[in-house]
Nucleic acid binder design. Structure first.
Lengths: 165, 165
DNA sequence: TAATAATGGATAAAAAATATCCATAATAGA
DNA sequence: TCTATTATGGATATTTTTTATCCATTATTA
């Protein structure tokens, strides 16, 4: 069971975008530079966030990305779902239909108990991620406990953000 | 996020082995036949279960596999962990160390809040699977509600099991 | 000794994740 | 209107993981 690194990048991107002044944007290049990850591949993840309505993309000169939602509304599950998709991790191949004692279709009306258990487990996983809002994440970075780092970041954002007319 | 099909096969294998009379075994070939899956690849999954102490393997004539634990003691998490391993699905690459505002080692003493959230979520996932015992799974197959199927299966097991001397 | 059955290692094929590139479309400013 | 800029979507390449097979070895029983 593995989660692609796009999710990590997407979460960090959203955390950074949350620090932007209203109506300002950061370009895909600037985000990739800040995170230290390959630009074109991060662009793919940002596209997914854009399609999901998590970030707003603006093309052209002084374009870029900004959050499309309030940080209190945006959960870690939203970001994960947008980038990883929502297909269940456990893929039931209906093994019980196979072999010399294979069950008939009628005998398989109820879902396989193994698949049902995994569905439950994934629901708990999803619930846990959905209980984490972006604010919880940026609290760490923007915390007053680390004023030096906070200043470095907000300064960088100010220098690299593009402002709408 | 994906789970290999070995987990599904392993769970079904354990469920079937739970129906064996005491001290009887089923060979890898018989199990693969029953489940309708490729024998050599299932063998790999059974090896993992054997190494984890979930099933007992006996070589040689009249050898095969049987459960090494009581069905009430064995959880779906045990089987999943044995076959998929226990490496976390979210791999934190410490993105915060990167880029023009990369954090120093000292600033990263606390785990990244994103990674921490995923660790929590995985713990909930694990808890959910650990709350399902093998008995819950075989209840479906062996249920009195499906006497015809139950008889087919127990008859097949009787025909294909090898008994210890 | 012969037959049987799991083990571990090596290897191969298929699928998915990771990563890049480019042509196109949209936007702002000159 | 022209140009520079920036995101988009598609195509493609590379690497890693998953899936699968095979074989020589070891253990066991009759």
């Amino acid at each position: 069971m593995k989660i692609g690194k796009g999710v990590e990048w997407g979460a960090h991107s959203c955390a950074l975008l949350a620090l932007l002044p209203p109506d300002a944007t950061l370009s895909g290049y600037a985000l990739a530079d800040f995170l230290g990850v390959p630009t074109p591949y991060l662009a793919k993840q940002l596209q997914a966030l854009s399609r999901a309505g998590i970030v707003m993309a603006k093309r052209g000169v002084a374009g870029g990305y900004r959050l499309a939602q309030q940080p209190e509304q945006l959960t870690l599950w939203d970001i994960t779902a947008a980038i990883e998709g929502t297909t269940p991790s456990f893929r039931c191949t209906e093994v019980r239909r196979n072999g010399p004692c294979g069950a008939s279709a009628a005998e398989c009306k109820k879902p396989c108990p193994i698949a049902a258990a995994f569905r439950q487990a994934e629901a708990r996983y999803r619930d846990a991620l959905a209980s984490v809002i972006l604010t919880d994440i940026i609290a760490d970075v923007a915390s007053e406990a680390r004023p030096a780092r906070k200043k470095r970041i907000t300064d960088w954002v100010r220098r690299n953000a593009a402002s709408a007319a």
